[in-house]
Amino acid sequence: MSIRRGLLALLAQEPMYGAQLRSEFESRTGGTWPLNVGQVYTTLARLERDGLVEGAGGADAEGRIAYRLTGQGRAEVQRWWAAPVDRGDTPRDERVIKLALAVTVPGVDIQRLVQTQRTATLRHLQDLTKLKRVTSDAAEQHTPDGRGPGQRNELAWLLVLDNLVYAAEAEIRWLDHVETRLARESTRAPKTPHRDTATSQTDRSPSQTDRSAKRASR
């Protein structure tokens, strides 16, 4: 995620110090993507160099400088809200890469691999669900009618959590699909002769190996 755009969006609300930007960013996203102060200041320096932000007056008593958007910065934020986020840089997902390799490298117990991953993801989903319960219970308790900034942050955090819940759920559905697909493949495989070698190496169910062996001895 571009920290640059996140900081610009926060500054569109009001001028802020570096440390303030960091804590605002984290409280609105529930600390899911922690920033370090160094990252924030490096990014601010680049934004200033590119003419998107500027110092809002001099340093205060503690030597802190608040930053604000320039006209160009404001336009950049507007563009960000208006345009869809580019999917170009799909992050490498080790789970997907691992499975793709497991399917092609001989001797891996894929069923086991899938189950181990599914259990781990479901545990993660249980943790997220607990967090959701705690957060929404808290939100309900102290906000019968409240719409203050604290409540907005809690809502933002709940929506971030929902996103993580759906992502974990999607992963489990994908794993279910992988399992079904591979099961179908392994019952079909003996009928296609050129697949025999691969089948006898990766699928170790006795009936399968038997059939492959018979085929090989013919």
Partner: peptide
């Protein structure tokens, strides 16, 4: 069969071909 709903449980048990193959706790 909904993982999102199973996640409300204290423990999730995975059943396959009549056998418990794994559990989250």
């Amino acid at each position: 069969h909904e993982a999102r709903h199973a996640a409300w449980a204290d423990r999730v048990v995975f059943l396959r071909d009549g056998v418990i193959v794994d559990t989250t706790g």
